[in-house]
Design a binder for these strands. Structure first.
Lengths: 233, 233
DNA sequence: TGATCTATAATGATATATCAATATAGATCG
DNA sequence: CGATCTATATTGATATATCATTATAGATCA
């Protein structure tokens, strides 16, 4: 057993949350999870305790564990929290990021640009499924690089948790056709601008650009929610 | 049983951390904790998992749980994290705090002023033990009030954890004679200035003043550490 | 005496068992 | 046929048991 059962159960649940397989409101039955990861109840409960502490699941006393639901108000609080820490992290990263990490970011921006140009040249208003997968995977990597560049484990942990929540609760990214040419082009421009700020070591600018990215994300989510009927499940 | 064993064990450990009874590097023996709280191993392990997730304890695989140690560098990261969130919270609080909460803060500042004047009039360079207790207890309350005023549960949880860490790892407050007349007077002035900013609903000023408070705290800790020989235990 | 080896105890990690509360599905009755 | 009642199963929460590893204390021997 290379890693503990507790850790395996924890990773298993995070993975399922990250992939979108576990959706808000779903019940987590301890024995079922234990069977799925091939362990017993104790390590699974430990994993669920950790996830509850991170705010991803909710324990109803005597009534089991559920993937946390998030009201519109709570979603706003989530974005508010991200506005507190992620721009701050971007500012730190501007001072601390290394050349090789900047190279990774540049590569990601180049890949995005390829997608944007393909969509424009082929006059496609929406990205393909594989383009969306690439886009989102690179988005995770891009932000991971910046956050890691702060070198601050507290910041890294908190932001990782917030970003996982964002993936669980942001309904936009699950909508399938969110990546329009317009959205892709704007997103590419914003990330490229942030990269330029990091290269120039311009901390205040990097901070401001990251704040704008988050606020833009928040606006998108709110607009989406307002178009949507009340969420089911 | 009004609360779950798991919660009781968790509260028990947080209490012991908060009071300073548990110090960095100490080993936590599951069976011993279980006996102390009157439960069994399972809920205690759940509580320890939560605390580990919060960064307060460290699990050495196969080797037990220890109160986390924090290097000078990690302590700097802790303060850096606080600089990210607490000033932000103070800025939000300036917009959202209610009149009654402002009244609580005013009362606390008044109590502090009484202590400062007593020390000055009686020409005592150091506070008494009971004055220190009062001072620290009101300091906790003061900051709790501000953080709660944000109304943002994410922010509240993260800052509560950071402040608990600060209590565990800040060696200054455990030194007994930290509350000199000078320190008390400066601290009172800083907190009173922040309160004025909150009353004026001046978010940028509140944010800046909170940042200065944290930076000042950081300087104190660093100066203390530099005067200190290598920490024992 | 001092070093090493061994038996014992302590401990972490996990598995299994227990018990009460809750949900579920039949069965019974009006 | 529908409502209610009861037996059964499921589940959460906790306790206890098991097993491997590590620490500890004697005991043995050079």
């Amino acid at each position: 057993m290379v890693e503990s059962m507790s850790q395996r159960a924890y990773d298993y649940m995070r993975q399922k949350l990250s992939s979108g397989e576990l959706k808000p409101g779903m019940r987590l039955v301890t024995r079922r999870v234990a069977r799925e990861v091939g362990g017993s109840l104790v390590p699974v409960r430990e994993a669920l305790s950790r996830l509850a502490s991170e705010g991803l699941i909710e324990h109803v006393p005597g009534g089991g564990a559920y993937i946390r639901r998030m009201s519109r108000e709570e979603l706003l609080h989530l974005y508010e929290m991200r506005e507190a820490v992620e721009p701050f992290a971007a500012g730190l990263a501007a001072a601390r990021i290394g050349e090789s990490q900047l190279g990774v970011l540049q590569t990601i921006c180049d890949e995005w640009l390829v997608v944007v140009r393909a969509m424009r040249d082929e006059k496609r208003p929406h990205a393909t499924a594989s383009e969306i997968d690439l886009w989102l995977e690179r988005d995770r990597l891009y932000h991971d690089v910046i956050i890691s560049a702060t070198g601050n484990p507290f910041l890294i942990k908190v932001i990782a948790d917030l970003r996982l929540m964002e993936r669980v609760y942001n309904p936009v990214r699950r909508s399938g056709d969110f990546l329009t040419l317009r959205v892709a082009a704007l997103s590419w421009r914003a990330h490229a601008a942030l990269l330029r700020a990091l290269k120039k070591r311009d901390a205040p600018l990097a901070q401001r650009l990251m704040a704008e990215q988050i606020q833009s994300g928040k606006r998108n989510v709110l607009a989406f929610l307002d178009r949507q009927p009340l969420s089911r499940r």
